[in-house]
Amino acid sequence: MRIGLFITCVNDLLYPGTGRAVVRVLERLGHRVEFPVEQTCCGQMQANSGYRAEAVPLARRFAETFAGYDAVVAPSGSCVAMVRDGYPRLLPETAEVAARTYELSELLVDVLGVVDVGARFPHRVTYHPTCHGLRMLRLGDRPMRLLRAVRDLELVELPDAEECCGFGGTFAVKNSDVSGAMLADKCAAIRATDAEYVLAADNSCLTHIGGGLSRSGAPTRPLHYAEILAGGGR
Protein backbone atom coordinates (compact mmCIF):
# COMPACT_ATOMS: atom_id res chain seq x y z
CA MET A 1 0.00 0.00 0.00
CA ARG A 2 1.31 3.45 -0.95
CA ILE A 3 0.93 5.71 2.05
CA GLY A 4 1.44 9.42 1.51
CA LEU A 5 2.32 11.53 4.53
CA PHE A 6 0.64 14.93 4.72
CA ILE A 7 2.69 16.58 7.40
CA THR A 8 0.77 19.91 7.50
CA CYS A 9 2.40 23.33 7.59
CA VAL A 10 2.23 23.76 11.35
CA ASN A 11 4.04 20.50 11.97
CA ASP A 12 6.56 21.10 9.20
CA LEU A 13 7.77 24.38 10.68
CA LEU A 14 7.00 24.12 14.39
CA TYR A 15 6.65 20.44 15.31
CA PRO A 16 8.80 18.31 12.99
CA GLY A 17 9.11 15.74 15.80
CA THR A 18 5.47 14.83 15.30
CA GLY A 19 6.08 14.11 11.62
CA ARG A 20 9.17 12.06 12.41
CA ALA A 21 7.10 10.12 14.96
CA VAL A 22 4.46 9.23 12.35
CA VAL A 23 7.20 7.96 10.04
CA ARG A 24 8.76 5.92 12.86
CA VAL A 25 5.47 4.31 13.91
CA LEU A 26 4.45 3.31 10.39
CA GLU A 27 7.91 2.06 9.41
CA ARG A 28 8.15 0.02 12.60
CA LEU A 29 4.89 -1.64 11.56
CA GLY A 30 6.49 -2.51 8.23
CA HIS A 31 4.93 0.14 6.01
CA ARG A 32 6.66 2.44 3.59
CA VAL A 33 5.77 6.11 3.93
CA GLU A 34 6.38 8.71 1.24
CA PHE A 35 6.58 12.45 1.74
CA PRO A 36 5.77 14.27 -1.50
CA VAL A 37 7.71 17.51 -1.14
CA GLU A 38 5.27 19.50 -3.31
CA GLN A 39 2.79 19.55 -0.40
CA THR A 40 2.22 22.76 1.51
CA CYS A 41 -0.90 23.64 3.53
CA CYS A 42 -4.53 22.47 3.49
CA GLY A 43 -5.95 26.01 3.41
CA GLN A 44 -8.07 25.58 6.51
CA MET A 45 -7.21 29.02 7.86
CA GLN A 46 -8.28 30.71 4.64
CA ALA A 47 -11.47 28.68 4.23
CA ASN A 48 -12.60 29.07 7.84
CA SER A 49 -11.87 32.79 7.85
CA GLY A 50 -14.05 33.49 4.83
CA TYR A 51 -11.37 33.40 2.11
CA ARG A 52 -12.76 30.63 -0.01
CA ALA A 53 -11.12 31.84 -3.22
CA GLU A 54 -7.75 31.75 -1.46
CA ALA A 55 -8.37 28.18 -0.23
CA VAL A 56 -9.33 26.68 -3.59
CA PRO A 57 -5.81 26.62 -5.13
CA LEU A 58 -4.53 24.84 -2.02
CA ALA A 59 -7.26 22.20 -2.26
CA ARG A 60 -6.40 21.65 -5.92
CA ARG A 61 -2.74 21.43 -5.06
CA PHE A 62 -3.40 18.85 -2.34
CA ALA A 63 -5.47 16.69 -4.71
CA GLU A 64 -2.73 16.78 -7.36
CA THR A 65 0.05 16.05 -4.88
CA PHE A 66 -1.66 13.04 -3.34
CA ALA A 67 -3.49 11.66 -6.41
CA GLY A 68 -1.36 8.53 -6.67
CA TYR A 69 -1.58 7.30 -3.08
CA ASP A 70 -3.76 4.53 -1.68
CA ALA A 71 -4.01 6.36 1.61
CA VAL A 72 -2.99 9.79 2.87
CA VAL A 73 -2.25 10.17 6.57
CA ALA A 74 -1.89 13.37 8.58
CA PRO A 75 -1.19 13.87 12.28
CA SER A 76 -3.78 16.63 12.54
CA GLY A 77 -7.51 16.22 13.14
CA SER A 78 -8.42 19.68 11.92
CA CYS A 79 -6.44 19.44 8.65
CA VAL A 80 -7.96 16.03 7.90
CA ALA A 81 -11.41 17.45 8.67
CA MET A 82 -10.70 20.32 6.28
CA VAL A 83 -9.71 17.86 3.55
CA ARG A 84 -12.43 15.32 4.10
CA ASP A 85 -15.39 17.58 4.97
CA GLY A 86 -14.33 20.89 3.48
CA TYR A 87 -12.67 20.01 0.16
CA PRO A 88 -15.61 18.30 -1.56
CA ARG A 89 -17.71 21.42 -0.94
CA LEU A 90 -14.88 23.68 -2.10
CA LEU A 91 -13.84 21.70 -5.18
CA PRO A 92 -15.90 18.61 -6.08
CA GLU A 93 -13.06 16.89 -7.98
CA THR A 94 -11.15 16.51 -4.70
CA ALA A 95 -13.79 14.17 -3.27
CA GLU A 96 -11.95 11.00 -4.18
CA VAL A 97 -8.61 11.81 -2.59
CA ALA A 98 -10.44 13.43 0.33
CA ALA A 99 -12.17 10.14 1.10
CA ARG A 100 -8.78 8.38 1.25
CA THR A 101 -7.30 10.88 3.72
CA TYR A 102 -7.04 9.71 7.34
CA GLU A 103 -6.04 11.02 10.70
CA LEU A 104 -3.28 8.81 12.12
CA SER A 105 -5.51 6.86 14.53
CA GLU A 106 -7.99 6.09 11.75
CA LEU A 107 -5.23 4.77 9.51
CA LEU A 108 -3.79 2.61 12.29
CA VAL A 109 -7.03 1.24 13.73
CA ASP A 110 -9.40 1.12 10.71
CA VAL A 111 -7.12 0.68 7.69
CA LEU A 112 -4.13 -1.19 9.12
CA GLY A 113 -6.03 -2.95 11.91
CA VAL A 114 -3.45 -2.16 14.61
CA VAL A 115 -4.07 -1.11 18.18
CA ASP A 116 -0.78 -2.02 19.87
CA VAL A 117 2.05 -0.26 18.06
CA GLY A 118 4.69 -1.58 20.46
CA ALA A 119 5.41 1.67 22.30
CA ARG A 120 6.43 2.32 25.90
CA PHE A 121 6.02 5.61 27.76
CA PRO A 122 6.34 5.52 31.55
CA HIS A 123 4.52 8.77 32.37
CA ARG A 124 1.22 10.12 33.63
CA VAL A 125 -0.71 11.67 30.73
CA THR A 126 -4.16 13.00 29.93
CA TYR A 127 -5.86 13.31 26.55
CA HIS A 128 -7.77 16.26 25.09
CA PRO A 129 -10.04 15.15 22.24
CA THR A 130 -9.96 18.15 19.92
CA CYS A 131 -13.23 19.42 18.44
CA HIS A 132 -12.50 18.46 14.85
CA GLY A 133 -11.37 15.00 15.86
CA LEU A 134 -14.33 14.52 18.13
CA ARG A 135 -17.21 16.03 16.22
CA MET A 136 -16.18 16.18 12.55
CA LEU A 137 -13.99 13.09 12.10
CA ARG A 138 -15.79 11.19 14.88
CA LEU A 139 -12.49 9.64 15.98
CA GLY A 140 -14.29 8.25 19.01
CA ASP A 141 -12.02 6.23 21.27
CA ARG A 142 -9.47 5.32 18.57
CA PRO A 143 -6.65 7.48 20.00
CA MET A 144 -7.46 6.25 23.50
CA ARG A 145 -7.36 2.61 22.39
CA LEU A 146 -3.93 3.18 20.88
CA LEU A 147 -2.74 4.91 24.05
CA ARG A 148 -4.11 2.26 26.39
CA ALA A 149 -1.94 -0.28 24.56
CA VAL A 150 1.22 1.71 25.34
CA ARG A 151 3.37 0.01 28.00
CA ASP A 152 3.68 1.74 31.39
CA LEU A 153 1.50 4.67 30.33
CA GLU A 154 -0.78 6.08 33.01
CA LEU A 155 -3.74 7.64 31.22
CA VAL A 156 -5.96 9.83 33.41
CA GLU A 157 -9.32 11.24 32.40
CA LEU A 158 -9.52 14.95 31.62
CA PRO A 159 -12.50 16.70 33.27
CA ASP A 160 -14.88 18.31 30.74
CA ALA A 161 -12.68 16.80 28.05
CA GLU A 162 -15.11 17.52 25.23
CA GLU A 163 -15.07 21.30 25.81
CA CYS A 164 -13.30 23.33 23.17
CA CYS A 165 -9.93 24.81 24.25
CA GLY A 166 -10.84 28.15 22.66
CA PHE A 167 -8.35 28.09 19.80
CA GLY A 168 -10.56 28.16 16.70
CA GLY A 169 -7.86 29.45 14.34
CA THR A 170 -8.25 33.19 13.84
CA PHE A 171 -10.85 33.16 16.65
CA ALA A 172 -7.98 33.21 19.15
CA VAL A 173 -6.93 36.59 17.72
CA LYS A 174 -10.28 38.11 16.66
CA ASN A 175 -11.98 37.14 19.93
CA SER A 176 -8.93 36.78 22.10
CA ASP A 177 -10.75 37.60 25.35
CA VAL A 178 -13.33 34.83 24.98
CA SER A 179 -10.65 32.49 23.69
CA GLY A 180 -8.53 33.30 26.74
CA ALA A 181 -11.43 32.57 29.10
CA MET A 182 -11.97 29.18 27.46
CA LEU A 183 -8.26 28.46 27.59
CA ALA A 184 -8.09 29.28 31.29
CA ASP A 185 -10.79 26.70 32.03
CA LYS A 186 -9.09 24.09 29.85
CA CYS A 187 -5.75 24.70 31.57
CA ALA A 188 -7.39 24.43 35.00
CA ALA A 189 -8.92 21.07 34.00
CA ILE A 190 -5.53 19.86 32.80
CA ARG A 191 -3.78 20.98 35.98
CA ALA A 192 -6.37 19.09 38.02
CA THR A 193 -5.22 15.84 36.43
CA ASP A 194 -1.62 16.22 37.66
CA ALA A 195 -0.52 14.79 34.34
CA GLU A 196 3.02 15.31 33.08
CA TYR A 197 1.79 15.54 29.51
CA VAL A 198 -1.43 16.63 27.84
CA LEU A 199 -1.90 14.79 24.57
CA ALA A 200 -4.01 15.58 21.54
CA ALA A 201 -4.31 14.73 17.87
CA ASP A 202 -3.69 18.28 16.76
CA ASN A 203 -0.64 20.47 17.32
CA SER A 204 -2.54 23.67 16.58
CA CYS A 205 -4.80 23.11 19.60
CA LEU A 206 -1.75 22.01 21.57
CA THR A 207 0.04 25.24 20.64
CA HIS A 208 -2.86 27.11 22.19
CA ILE A 209 -3.11 24.89 25.26
CA GLY A 210 0.67 24.73 25.67
CA GLY A 211 0.91 28.51 25.36
CA GLY A 212 -1.62 28.86 28.17
CA LEU A 213 0.03 26.25 30.39
CA SER A 214 3.47 27.72 29.91
CA ARG A 215 2.23 31.25 30.59
CA SER A 216 0.58 30.16 33.81
CA GLY A 217 3.67 28.26 34.90
CA ALA A 218 1.94 24.89 34.85
CA PRO A 219 4.32 21.91 34.74
CA THR A 220 2.22 19.90 32.27
CA ARG A 221 3.68 19.82 28.77
CA PRO A 222 1.76 19.46 25.51
CA LEU A 223 2.65 16.55 23.26
CA HIS A 224 1.14 15.05 20.13
CA TYR A 225 0.04 11.48 20.84
CA ALA A 226 1.96 10.26 17.76
CA GLU A 227 5.15 10.95 19.65
CA ILE A 228 4.05 8.61 22.41
CA LEU A 229 3.23 5.91 19.89
CA ALA A 230 6.70 6.35 18.42
CA GLY A 231 8.27 5.55 21.75
CA GLY A 232 8.11 8.92 23.49
CA GLY A 233 10.16 12.05 23.87
CA ARG A 234 10.28 15.03 21.59
Binding site: I7, L13, P16, F35, S176, G211, G212, R215
Partner: peptide, 17 residues
Amino acid sequence: AWTAERDAPLPAGESFR
Protein backbone atom coordinates in the same frame (compact mmCIF):
# COMPACT_ATOMS: atom_id res chain seq x y z
CA ALA B 1 -3.77 39.37 20.94
CA TRP B 2 -2.43 35.82 21.05
CA THR B 3 0.44 36.57 23.42
CA ALA B 4 -1.79 38.52 25.78
CA GLU B 5 -2.62 35.23 27.47
CA ARG B 6 -0.54 32.56 25.74
CA ASP B 7 3.11 32.01 24.95
CA ALA B 8 3.84 31.49 21.26
CA PRO B 9 6.11 28.83 19.76
CA LEU B 10 9.17 29.56 17.62
CA PRO B 11 10.14 27.44 14.60
CA ALA B 12 12.05 24.21 15.25
CA GLY B 13 15.75 23.97 14.56
CA GLU B 14 15.12 21.81 11.50
CA SER B 15 11.87 21.65 9.56
CA PHE B 16 10.33 18.28 8.81
CA ARG B 17 11.03 18.60 5.11
